[in-house]
Simulated scan of single mutants.
Amino acid sequence: MLRIVLLVAAAVATPAAFGAEAPHGGPVIDMHVHAFTMAEVPPGAPACPGDQAVVMPTVDPAQDLDFSAMGACARPLLAPPDDAGLRDGTITALRRHDVRRAMLEGPVERVAEWREAAPGLFLPGVAFGARKEPSIDELRRLHAAGRLAVLGEAYIQYRGQRPDDPRYDPYFSLAEELDIPVAIHMGEGPPATARFPGYEDYRAAMGSPFLLEAVLRKHPKLRIYVMHYGSPLVDEMIAMMFAYPNLYVDVACNDWAMPRAQFHDALRRMVDAGFAKRILFGTDQMYWPDAVGEAIESIEAAPFLDAGQKRDILYGNAARFLRLSEAEIAADHAPARR
């Protein structure tokens, strides 16, 4: 989860890109959505689409870092007023942009609440690698009850730990046994992560895709996708995808919050390396529902992608990764009910 909170993204969005409806011409699967509460951000907190460079603070290390001085957008995305607004705004944004399925991670009961509000839209995810771990027995019960479809997000990097730490092997083993996907965070945290309150355990080095090698060798049948594609370590991710055909990536948050030139460069490199069929779309929607449209637009705007590659990234790759049936795919392509 690339947490960008409270004025930490300070790019100025171009009017043409801001809030644009993406004419993507087909259904979308979002592999990365969160059922959060508004406890961490105030109503109206802005976040900025990344068409221009994110302004990073440069300070004397003897000084405290003033996050409120990191800049503001000319036309920001704004957080909703309350928890209900976040839930309903996210559901509305997903439906507006023809997202037919979305992997939803958050507290188990909150995920259930969101699923009840939008039947058939969300695939339930359950996190691990956080400070309070779900037990393997609990995960088995959730799976048996239809409340666990994806094991993740795995927050291991935010704890400053390696994914091949033995304490996490039971989770990978369970996912392989149950044949459910694993979603693991490997990539950036908030800007100035080392000084960001609440993220003291995060380590950039623990985002190296090479740290997954022992996991993938031990669990060759594991379906796993790396959230944020291990950004910015694209060459390492390409090497791992070349060696391990069960390894996929998502482009969530990087596709709307990071500088557009940086994101497109990374996406093009993975496509040019031959992995256009293993790139999954995601938004990492946290507190800003309008990020859904911004993320889709970033794929549509990529000049190096042809129409088939855009459809694969927005839908086809995830449909194959999730092993959707022909009937499910046909239903996703039927006219949406508004």
Rank of each mutant, 00 (worst) to 15 (best):
A117Q: 07
A194L: 06
Y244A: 05
A145W: 01
A47D: 13
F67Y: 09
Q285K: 07
R320N: 15
R115I: 09
D284Y: 05
A302D: 05
R95Q: 13
C253N: 15
A252D: 07
N254A: 01
A130Q: 12
D290Q: 09
V108G: 09
M237G: 05
V41E: 03
L222D: 13
F36A: 11
V5I: 14
L267M: 00
P119G: 08
A175P: 05
V41H: 02
E116G: 15
R140E: 01
R3I: 09
D51T: 00
R320P: 15
Y171E: 00
C73R: 02
V5Y: 11
A16R: 09
V5T: 13
D137T: 12
L123A: 13
L211M: 01
P163M: 08
Y248F: 13
E116A: 15
S325A: 11
E200M: 07
H97P: 11
P166S: 02
G106W: 04
H97N: 12
R115M: 15
N246F: 06
V251A: 06
E300K: 07
Y155F: 05
A93N: 09
E236H: 13
D88G: 10
R268N: 02
R323Q: 14
H219D: 12
P191T: 01
V55R: 04
V5F: 12
L247D: 10
R337N: 14
R75P: 00
H34Q: 15
C253K: 14
P197T: 05
L247W: 12
Y315I: 15
M31L: 05
A145Q: 01
W288G: 09
N246G: 14
A183R: 10
L280S: 04
E326V: 06
F18V: 08
L65T: 03
D137I: 12
A13E: 07
A149I: 09
